[in-house]
Design a protein around this nucleic acid. Structure first.
Lengths: 101, 101
DNA sequence: TGAATATATGAACAGTCATTCATATAATGA
DNA sequence: TCATTATATGAATGACTGTTCATATATTCA
């Protein structure tokens, strides 16, 4: 059995993905890096809300940033993030299929 | 890009794992099925709190149950759950290793 | 330098959620 | 049937969190 502390950390890690705005941002970045304004426009979420969520993703080391002039580009920090999202999507798609039988 | 609705569902799915008590229960069931009382005792969480969380896991189809007399045995519903927990654990272990360099 | 654009952030508010407490339901055994 | 044991659940509460609004910071360009 893993320690309570480690499992709490694991819970915190999954918390990152447990919000519609954040996971939409991450899935969007799966395709290609994007700047804040683009993300806000594509997802139709206010610039402020996006920026707040990006900060959370940044602090969790789930995205990395690069400043180009006055714009800031965000991208996924590593391949794990992509894989976890993909696996989660597969899971709920299978769940949906099972319901349809 | 996936639909807003699907990604919100995905967020809800990850929400299941985003709580210390729930993920501790799930990780405990990774090893072997257990009844409510055992779970509460091992994790040192009140019977009521465990039962409330088990209900959430049940409704999310993440665990399944079997009643034996007055006891109710809980087990992981499918292999996906085990895999997701394992992958998440690997991720945060790697993260820890990177910090140590 | 001043205006415009891009991003970040603090405070406040509303909604969500996990635990506790008390109690209900259900099954067993005497 | 009555007491005991195992589990479930509703209400209340405190804590947490995502968005909005206003504003700050930083960069570019005229």
């Amino acid at each position: 059995m893993e320690s309570k502390e480690l499992l709490t950390e694991l819970g915190d890690f999954f918390k990152i993905f447990a919000d519609p705005t954040r996971i939409r941002i991450l899935e969007l970045l799966t395709e290609k890096e994007k700047c804040v304004g683009e993300i806000a426009e594509i997802l139709e979420v206010s610039q402020s809300a996006v920026s707040h969520q990006l900060k959370i993703l940044r602090l969790a080391n789930v995205v990395s940033t690069e400043k180009k002039g006055q714009m800031v580009t965000y991208r996924l920090a590593d391949e794990h993030i992509r894989i976890i999202i993909q696996y989660g999507l597969e899971h709920i798609r299978e769940e949906k299929n099972e319901k349809d039988l």
